[in-house]
Amino acid sequence: MDIQQLVFWTISLIMIGCAIGVIMSRNPIKSVLFLIMTFFTISAHYVMMNAQFLAIVNIIVYAGAIMVLFLFVIMLMNLNADTEPQKNTLVQFAGVISGGVLLLVFIAALKSSFAGIENQNINLQQASDIGLIKNLGQMLFTKYVFPFEIACVLFLSAMVGAVVLGKKEKELGQTSEL
């Protein structure tokens, strides 16, 4: 086992441990912290694959912005044990079924992707430069420019939607004060 594999397995073990920690923690704050750790280990995997841009963007967007908002919301919640609503059996049943279906989809996706790899020779040297920001930018603005623009329009509409929702709430607040 060379040092690269050693690093890979260490990061993977930490990642799986943190991911289990997310769903096993009783305290939502600890769940969020485990999730942040998971994002960091995912970023470490990106760095191992020489995709530095993806790694740092993953940290900025997920760990730096979205998870801060998560923490923000959770900190405002009342975390006493007795205020937590009891989940009924039907909800638990539905949860088990949807979780199982998701697992099935994951396994199917993994299996189909493994099927190609066994008899394919991947050129690691060539693959290792694709994640650098210059190559990524060139790809995004030439080959994949159409999906990229569609994603931009989607983000813009989401932003407009957020502004509209924010406006409405403010008007309601003003009327309730009166």
């Binding site: 841009f53 740092i56 963007v57 940290i59 900025i60 760990a63 730096g64 912005a65 801060v68 920001i133």
Partner: peptide, 11 residues
């Protein structure tokens, strides 16, 4: 990606 690194640490 030095600038992005700084930005990540700040966030």
């Amino acid at each position: 990606i030095g600038v992005l690194f700084i930005f990540g640490v700040v966030s």
